[in-house]
Design a protein around this nucleic acid. Sequence first.
DNA 1: TTGCAAACTAACTTATTAGTAAGTAAGTTT
DNA 2: AAACTTACTTACTAATAAGTTAGTTTGCAA
Lengths: 189, 189
Amino acid sequence: MKIAQERLLELGETLIRTRGFNAISYADLSQKLQVKNAAIHYHYPTKEDLGIAIIRFNREKFAQFCQHMIKREFKPDEQIRRYIRIYSSSLQDEKVCLVGSLGPDFTTFGPAMQNELKNLTSEILDWFTQVLEQGRNEGIFQFKVEPQIQALLIITNLTSALILSKIMGPTAFHQITDSVMSSLLKTQP
Amino acid sequence: MKIAQERLLELGETLIRTRGFNAISYADLSQKLQVKNAAIHYHYPTKEDLGIAIIRFNREKFAQFCQHMIKREFKPDEQIRRYIRIYSSSLQDEKVCLVGSLGPDFTTFGPAMQNELKNLTSEILDWFTQVLEQGRNEGIFQFKVEPQIQALLIITNLTSALILSKIMGPTAFHQITDSVMSSLLKTQP
DNA sequence: TTGCAAACTAACTTATTAGTAAGTAAGTTT
DNA sequence: AAACTTACTTACTAATAAGTTAGTTTGCAA
């Protein structure tokens, strides 16, 4: 039986996002995939190799999301709403985002994996910055700081909203996202 | 040689905040304290016992901070500034806050440790909410949502600012805190 | 000074970890 | 059909993890 690469990477991502990179093992993965641990080592010799592949997998999914937003020509507010929906869909299974899960353990990773995580993070920030800027130019969004700063503020809200929700329950998440969206859109009196 | 409890808990907190709970071991702690691992097991039989003690230690330090704020009768804006200073002092050694470090691994903890983390989190949120409310009543702060929501927004900014800074460098942190403070204080045109 | 408990050390156990080496079955190429 | 490759399994290793047990030191009170 060939391992379905996508199933492996998706499972790995899920485990990382629910329990953390340093709390998962080859045994966890191989058991759930009904293969031996050596089968995973065959594809990803070291745990770092696996970590890198999972981050890259996530980057590709994000790139696809961005492409989809362009193809469908969604307006900035709809793009943000759909991005937030990705986060809220993780609430149920108590997943945090990959950046929120791997960030605190950053110093335990090797340079290659650190770099992969840096790339993911800056891609998200760049995309968010660009959507905010476009939205303000189109008169849909309002905010007083530079788009790059506003992107930082909202991304940190979202990342931590998932973390906080693991501890305190999902109410916090919705309170945060609702007020983020409405303050972005609200028209000045 | 008696283990200095405070040194042990402080070291444990530092290790958790730099590498994560699931990436530290009794060996890490005992080596740095120049004792055998059994000496730590004597005080904290299980790793969960140790984790609980470290969170409680952090709660006590936070309670002392709050008491200090009351005694010195600092104004709300000065209280927030001093609270943010606690965070920025962690930037150098690439520490995140305890909530940001333990939150993503929440599901790997037992109920007692989960509960201790819940208590720490709600104490921080409650204090922040109260300071924001007081500051707005005194005409020092401005914000449009309820104080409890505004507390969520700022706490998530701070928590994630440290996580992001581990990945992308400390610039992000200062951009976030500067704009948080100025938007809290800025007077409406 | 003796007695005793608190706070260790020495020396383990058991389980789990990432990682490896040798072998094999099923395709694929030549 | 022989040679080779891919994708595994079987069976292991060495290291490290948390945790234990039995004995030893230390500080202090009676």
